[in-house]
Design a protein around this nucleic acid. Structure first.
Lengths: 119, 119
DNA sequence: GCTCGATATGTTTCGTCGTGCATATCGAAA
DNA sequence: TTTCGATATGCACGACGAAACATATCGAGC
């Protein structure tokens, strides 16, 4: 075998009015925004288009009672973005959910894995 | 609100060598094949192309030690397909995993939902 | 050994989604 | 008040995946 032939992926998405308010990519984006302090830097770090990042932020902010990401114009650096307290809280809850779901799936996967090809 | 504005979706996929051996669509497909007795009928019932159904079956059969779906040529009806005992077993395990993961996510979602827009 | 309906597979068309590029806009700081 | 870098937004192009269409192949039964 070259790497890990048998594995699993689990995607949890929170929906608001039929569009994704939070998912794996948006959770990662929240962390990237916090780390880099701007949408454009986060986009570059994640190697996706600014356009897409902006749409994701839009969807996140639109899905919750208050914005998860606060954006600002002006300043020496021309502006920037930051994760709000609600953003941090939601991210924390989502990561906890992810971890528990992953553990659960891993336990079940141990029973299924022997039935799969080993390669 | 028109329907349920806030909800969640959880997709669990089992991977074999970087392609999906089993996921939500393939699990549904297994049930459709069992119910209708052929790939073409299952495709029609699920309203997807036969081509796609065939590829899904290929991926499933390729990912496990033995086929999950047995196909047959000839006969008065020209052939058909059926779910093997291993197919039934894998499907049962997957459905159990899905149910438990769904319950887990639902419990967590109760804590996140109040933070989302109600519409 | 025909027949028939389903499996098996190639090719082409098409809708969708993301990217890339261009551009307008904003506002704190110098 | 001028500057500067980031936000905000429109639009055309291209990549990818699925559908649609076409067709070859199989083999139990009659």
């Amino acid at each position: 075998m070259t790497a890990t032939p048998n594995a699993f992926k689990i995607y949890i998405r929170l929906l608001h009015d039929c569009d994704i308010a939070l998912g794996p990519g948006k959770a990662d984006l929240l962390e990237a925004i916090e780390q880099h302090g701007s949408l454009s830097a986060a986009a570059k770090a994640m190697d996706i288009s600014y356009r897409r990042v902006w749409a994701m932020v839009e969807a996140m902010n639109n899905g919750f009672r208050e914005p998860l990401v606060a954006t600002a114009h002006g300043g020496a650096k021309g502006g920037g973005a930051s994760v709000t307290p609600l953003g941090h809280e939601v991210l924390r809850l989502y990561r906890t959910l992810q971890t528990e779901a992953n553990d659960l799936t891993l336990r079940h996967f141990e029973h299924i894995k022997p039935l799969m090809k080993a390669d």
